[in-house]
């Protein structure tokens, strides 16, 4: 099975991705020539056993890692071999990340955490950034906790702040690495619904790695991986 879609608009695509981790005799080919498209407004789930290369694929698509071979495009811009500067700018403007662990900056309030990507991108006054951050937190049901420090929020609330942060610069693509893996069922469902809402309402392409088959089934598209390939 290929991760490519036929026809329609593509938010992000990868061609022939190969990634080997380790070296010498310990080298393992984690991704073995993957082709892959992300469609805007759709949620994509990657499922598969541990070690099949799901997270590695996510990091490559997130421009946090470089493939040994292959190409990655956002629009017409090839980014696998692009300079660190170009990839960093693309991460800031076009990509949003949600990780299993929220990785909020604990000395900052929820609102300030959401403002961090906006502050880096520039172009907005502090008031505009605050307004947008509060708006996003409101959408995720956290408006009343916008000024609380990150460490004063529950696990589910922190993960929702992380989603708001990922959406801060209205990126075309949202990447989530087991975003509900650290949450109880109620919070997991809430977070998933919010990710799906983002895709359907805001038109963003969401790529989610998950071990939860129930959540994967609710995604618009499921990609099953085994030994570095889609099955």
């Amino acid at each position: 099975m290929s991760g490519q879609v036929t026809g329609g608009v593509v938010a992000m695509k990868a061609r022939g991705l190969v990634r080997t981790l380790g070296s010498g005799e310990a080298a393992v080919r984690v991704l073995d020539g993957l082709d892959f498209d992300l469609s805007p407004g759709k949620t994509h789930a990657i499922v598969g056993p541990s070690g099949c290369g799901k997270s590695t694929l996510l990091y490559l698509m997130g421009l946090l890692d470089r493939p040994d071979r292959g190409e990655i495009y956002i629009g017409d811009l090839e980014l696998a071999a692009a300079s660190d500067e170009v990839r960093t700018r693309a991460r800031n403007a076009s990509l949003g990340f949600v990780f299993q662990f929220h990785f909020l900056l604990s000395e900052f309030s929820a609102m300030e955490n959401v403002m961090l990507p906006m502050a880096k991108l520039g172009g907005k006054s502090r008031e505009e950034m605050e307004q947008r951050a509060v708006g996003l937190l409101d959408k995720l049901g956290l408006a009343d906790k916008a000024r609380r420090m990150a460490h004063q929020l529950s696990g589910g609330e922190q993960q929702r702040v992380a989603i708001a942060r990922a959406l801060a610069n209205a990126p075309a693509i949202l990447l989530a690495d087991e975003p509900t893996g650290n949450l109880d069922e109620r919070n997991a469902r809430q977070v998933f619904e919010q990710l799906q809402g983002v895709a359907h309402e805001l038109g963003q392409a969401v790529l989610m790695v998950t071990h939860n088959p129930g959540l994967a089934e609710q995604c618009d598209r499921i990609l099953r991986m085994r030994d570095g390939r889609f099955t």
Binding site: D84, T88, G96
Partner: peptide, 9 residues
Amino acid sequence: AILRSMGYS
């Protein structure tokens, strides 16, 4: 890592 992922160089 998270700062780098959100576009900090």
